[in-house]
Design a binder for these strands. Structure first.
Length: 584
DNA sequence: GCCGTTTTCGGCCCGACTGTTTTCAGTCG
């Protein structure tokens, strides 16, 4: 899919134009890039179907950008952008990532010292050149030195699975400090906001919000900057402070008064694009929206601000859950009261992808079943690896049958329903790793690709589509194969995969492992357009993995899924019916 | 460069913090 490539191209052009001090155009380019990233459909398909007119129908894309996109799709490059490239430092993108450097300073540095990238910048800092520059001083040089260090340490985003527990930990430490320092704050209102609250798969930094009267705010800030493991206090004020932890994560804290708490929560939760849309609606209605509240433009009186709900309401919108706030059409839907009723954690009745020590899991069958029952599930599926997955102790048929025997025995002791399943390798030729007579005895067949990741797109697509054609396959596990921050998704044509899956009634997995989150939100949205059903599974190896359901659920919500879209919300009898139907 | 039940031209989100300034520009989110 070309969406990502084209968005990158536009972001790059925006950086260069901003460097050239061109006004407004960078914003227009970034907005267009953002829309393309969140399109949920292959832009190439749109262009092939409806030409340039199809492109200009996308909000933020007009005549000119549509031309550029068309040119890129036809020729593989954009002449105008090629010419732009020589007009800014080669390392523009990385320099922009240094905290404290924007377009203006970058230009100054390039003009004065020929600084083209981060390593040039580092040299200049070490030679103490910067402090001689107008409007720079010793302090700004020191700050940039630290910013470069920070960039080198960790300029990548943190996985949700790491950020969420870390945020929980920081917040409880902050609460404890506030309590012992007798700060007058409502502890229940210290919560995380930002992309973390939207449950994005990766987080740039952790944003925390607290509520306190003005005179108490500094006390909260003091508690915050004196937390253990603080490496650096980046800034500290009465409403906003910023720290960096020793392990490299940046954390912001904002403190607002009670009458602004809802507005601040709304504002800091973002996304930025969602907020800009909201503010424009506010302006049209004669209001002004900021992190302090919704105000009448004329009387400057506050109209809303205590809660998020009243802000959305006064703007003529139903409440929009944080996971949807990505400027993907949620505001239009909210205006028409047409938002999906998102799936909730209580809707899930079972976990249908997990491992035991029969293959590479760490716990016994009995332990996993016991824990799942303790979690209140109605059913689970045990899905150990099939025989070809040697590296993961894949099971020969005899061992699989021994597991069935044990499941039958345990079924008498536990109330929870236990489905006999397997995570069956989809072999290179698209066939499955057990013969049909074994597969047909299984309650659930979860098909997965674990090898040959670098195959060309056509080959991988054929492999998966062919497996989907097997009547005994029920679920396609971690369909893109990506490992967050480690391995890119394999090349595969998802249009073909989703089409085949829809035609054969197969279920798409949303794998909840923090390092997978696969399908991701964008692919979920696309798959839903094909009318597909999903399951949210943990792919657990230990009992503590069973709790990672929250991450997969988050992605499902970000993908606009409702209870009905997800088969493991169905009661046991209906679930069995779904998989039976697939086979006959 | 985009967009329009205020506009086809003239707008384009809004406020905090910092550093180097004597009143503000740059950056960030």
């Amino acid at each position: 899919m070309k969406n990502r490539e084209i968005a990158e191209l536009l972001y790059e052009a925006a950086d260069i134009l901003e460097y050239q001090q061109v006004e407004w155009k960078p914003r227009a380019y970034r907005k267009a890039a953002q829309m393309i990233e969140n399109l949920g459909e292959d832009i190439k398909k749109i262009y092939e179907r409806s030409g340039k007119d199809g492109l200009t129908e996308i909000p933020g894309i007009g005549e000119s950008i549509a031309d550029h996109i068309a040119e890129y799709l036809e020729t593989g490059k954009v002449e105008k952008f090629e010419k732009l490239k020589g007009k800014a430092p080669s390392g523009t993108a990385e320099l922009m990532e240094i905290r404290g450097i924007g377009a203006k300073k970058m230009k100054k540095l390039a003009d004065a010292f020929g600084i083209m990238n981060v390593s040039d910048l580092k040299e200049a800092i070490n030679a103490h050149k910067l402090r001689k520059l107008e409007n720079f001083g010793e302090k700004s040089e020191e700050n940039l030195a630290r910013a470069v260090e920070q960039y080198e340490k960790s300029h990548s985003r943190i996985a949700l699975g790491k950020a969420l527990p870390l945020a929980d930990e920081i917040i409880s430490a902050l609460k404890a400090r506030c309590k012992s320092a007798r700060c007058k704050v409502d502890l229940a209102k210290i919560i995380y906001t930002g992309s973390l609250r939207r449950l994005r798969e990766t987080i740039g930094d952790i944003d925390i919000l607290a509520e306190a009267e003005k005179e108490e705010a500094l006390k909260v800030m003091d508690a915050f900057v004196s937390l253990p493991d603080v490496e650096e206090v980046v800034l500290k004020g009465s409403t906003k402070s910023s720290i960096i932890l020793k392990e490299g994560t940046a954390i912001d804290l904002r403190v607002v008064t009670p009458e602004s708490y809802g507005a601040a929560l709304q504002y800091f939760t973002g996304s930025k694009e969602h907020n800009i849309e909201l503010r424009n609606i506010a302006i049209k209605k004669g209001y002004k929206l900021s992190e302090y509240g919704l105000y009448s433009k004329e009387s400057e009186k506050q109209i809303a601000g205590k809660s998020e709900e009243e802000i959305y309401e006064k703007l003529g919108l139903v409440y929009i859950p944080p996971e949807l706030r990505e400027s993907r059409g949620e505001i239009k839907a909210a205006a028409k009261n047409a938002l999906p009723k998102l799936i909730e954690v209580g809707d899930l009745r079972g976990d249908i992808h997990m491992h035991t020590n029969y293959s590479e899991g760490k716990e016994s069958l009995e332990t996993m079943i016991g824990e799942a029952e303790a979690l209140g599930y109605e059913y689970i599926a045990v899905t150990d690896h099939s025989r070809s997955q040697r590296i993961a102790s894949g099971m020969e048929i005899e061992k699989l049958k021994a597991q069935w025997y044990e499941i039958d025995k345990l079924s008498k002791r536990f109330k929870i329903k236990i489905l006999k399943g397997s995570e069956v390798e989809i072999l290179k030729d698209g066939s499955l790793d057990y013969p049909d007579e074994v597969l047909k005895e299984l309650d659930i067949v979860v098909g997965a690709v674990h090898s040959g990741f670098s195959a060309p797109e056509k080959k991988m697509t054929e492999r998966i589509v062919s497996a989907i054609g097997n009547r005994y396959l029920d679920i396609l596990a971690h369909p893109s194969g990506r490992l967050l921050g480690k391995r890119e998704a394999y090349a595969v044509n998802f249009e073909n995969v989703f089409e085949a899956a829809a035609a054969n009634g197969k279920v798409m997995e949303i794998n909840s492992q923090p390092s997978r989150l696969d399908l991701n939100d964008e692919l979920i949205l696309r798959a839903k357009n094909f009318g597909l059903k999903f399951c949210i599974s943990t792919d657990s190896y230990t009992i503590s993995d069973l709790a990672s359901m929250r991450y997969g659920l988050g992605q499902a919500r970000r993908g606009w899924l409702e209870k009905e879209d997800v088969v493991n919300t169905y009661p046991y009898s209906r679930l069995k019916e779904v998989f039976k139907k697939i086979k006959h």
